[in-house]
Design a protein around this nucleic acid. Structure first.
Length: 483
RNA sequence: GCUCCCAUCGUCUAGAGGCCUAGGACACAUCCCUUUCACGGAUGCGGCAGGGGUUCAAAUCCCCUUGGGAGUACCA
């Protein structure tokens, strides 16, 4: 490669919330910049005035920030090539368009939608691939004047030359296209707004992009874009086209498969760390086989050569597992703080921060979504415990249940409530008594757990007893005995 | 239809001619641990789409078939 500073970009269109596919593209660009000490730029491609909405722009900012992909230059932070929002760059595109017009690389086309549709229909009838005829290519100045007088507004079309276009893609390898198959495409719409293919190139030139990393759905745009680079006498950046992210049924990922927006995943309880880690593995693989990595670690290890050229399917199973892994391994203070967002229905002031952490610590193990924490800790907060029917019938109402609870109630007088370790020891002795009578330790504890939580599963029993404290433990046991 | 891209366990992938009786991760199964569910650990199940070449040697290179994906807009 060259020794220029690497400059890459993510250029989302604000016509929807930030999509996972876009997020992954952003991630790869970000990683490429970080790895090479380059710059990672955010550019908002809002030339589609109809579909652009401010809330989507906000969502893009928020989502990108949430997963840690902060940009070096962008609409909000500015930069040497501002503005970074296409709707504010219309005069720049006009200038470049005029240049292409003047130099004969582009021409005005006055064809109406009807004419174009007719051409298209004809092509279909002849079972021929459609391509614009180029009939406006050689309009005389007089003809154009006449058309203009009729009130027709022209579009600007790029005059596609004959021949073949070849370029080397960093992940796909050598790619070749027959330009005879691509028609003269529109670069400026009749309303004076540039089309995508034109605006990207102008911006990428102006913003000095060195690498274009994007989804392979852009492969067919690439020859068109390269032609524009060439016509403008600009250096062509390196391209790297990655496979797409597909839904489990191999179709395009859509809402019907669940969430598609990064913000949806986060709202569902996925941790940003886990989410980025997971999407990084979709199309990229670590050199050491170690899959659990922080963003920084991934950046250190990142290399375009390890990008995959095939599509990958977005499966929730692994994401969930990974999310659970992060929930279990991130510092407890951190997880506790984030968990609070899901516990707003509870009166958290009931417990000290330390106790809250104990609660979360012993509840975080089995969950894979942070949102599950709410249900997981409910019995710590309910004043009126809800007891599962089968816990009532199969556990608490039994003779053994009464016996165990009676004994446990007596034990409460000696229990060292403030010391979880000690509680465990005392419990061990407690279980031992029943074990001698042939009652399995797990059965004994099941009964105590049932009385205290109303469930058969939950946090560490020592923590439950300690955090609940003597008063509530005794109260709950008595209530359970009265069932 | 036309053009382009892709093809290793169910899924994500390692593999850049011999290191491959194809490695890892998720999922699944069994076992162990255990105060529950889990977590963790161990073991197992499972794949080079098919067919031709090239080569002493092919998952790796070439061709064909099949399958999948993308593009084909005055959308990005």
């Amino acid at each position: 490669m060259n020794d220029k500073q690497v400059r890459v970009r993510i250029a989302p269109s604000p016509s929807g919330n930030l999509h996972v596919g876009t997020a992954r593209t952003a991630l790869f660009n970000y990683l490429c910049a970080k790895k090479n000490g380059g710059k990672y730029i955010l550019r908002i491609e809002d030339t589609d005035l109809e579909r652009t909405e401010q809330k989507y722009i906000d969502n893009i900012y928020d989502s990108l920030k949430a997963i840690g992909l902060n940009w070096d230059e962008g609409p909000d932070v500015g930069g040497p090539y501002a503005p970074y929002q296409q709707s504010e760059r219309f005069d720049i595109y006009k200038k470049y368009a005029q240049r292409l017009l003047d130099e004969g690389y582009a021409y005005e086309c006055f064809c109406t939608q009807e004419e174009l549709d007719a051409e298209k229909e004809q092509a279909i009838k002849e079972r021929r691939a459609y391509k614009y005829s180029g009939k406006c290519r050689h309009l005389t100045p007089e003809q154009k004047e006449e058309l203009r007088k009729q009130g027709k507004k022209p579009v600007l079309r790029f005059a596609v030359p004959e021949g073949h276009m070849k370029f080397k893609d960093l992940v796909k390898g050598e790619l070749e296209f027959d330009l005879g198959l691509v028609g003269d495409f529109v670069i400026m719409k009749s309303n004076g707004i540039p089309t995508y293919n034109f605006a990207v190139v102008v911006d990428d030139i102006e913003m000095k992009m060195t690498h274009i990393i994007r989804g392979e759905d852009h492969i067919s745009n690439t020859p068109k874009q390269i032609m524009i680079y060439n016509a403008l006498g600009a250096e062509v950046p390196q391209f790297a086209h990655v496979g797409m992210i597909l839904a489990p049924d191999k179709s395009k990922l859509s809402k019907r498969h669940g969430a598609t927006a990064v913000s949806d995943f986060i709202a569902q309880g996925y941790l940003p760390e886990a989410f980025v880690n997971f999407i990084a593995l979709l199309g990229w693989s670590p050199s050491d086989g170690e899959e659990i990595k922080t963003l920084d670690e991934i950046a250190k290890d990142f290399d375009l050569s390890r990008l995959s050229s095939s599509n990958s399917i977005f499966e929730y199973d692994k994401l969930k597992w990974m999310n659970g892994h992060y929930i279990r391994h991130l510092p407890i203070e951190d997880i506790t703080n984030r968990a609070k967002a899901y516990l707003t229905d509870y009166d958290l002031s009931k417990y000290s921060e330390k106790q809250l952490q104990q609660i979360i610590e012993s509840t975080r193990e089995p969950i894979s979504l942070l949102s599950e924490i709410k249900d997981g800790v409910s019995y710590f907060f309910e004043d009126e415990l809800t007891i599962d029917e089968d816990v009532k019938n199969d556990i608490l109402k039994t003779d053994l249940g009464k016996e165990v609870l009676d004994a446990f109630l007596k034990l409460c007088d000696e229990l060292k409530f403030e010391d979880v370790e000690e509680i465990h020891h005392q419990l061990e002795a407690f279980r031992g008594v029943f074990k001698e009578k042939g009652i399995k330790p797990k059965q004994t504890m099941w009964i105590v757990r049932g009385a205290l939580t109303g469930r058969t599963r939950g946090a560490d029993i020592g923590v439950i007893i300690s955090v609940l404290g003597k008063d509530r433990v005794v109260e709950r046991v008595k209530k359970a005995m009265a069932i």
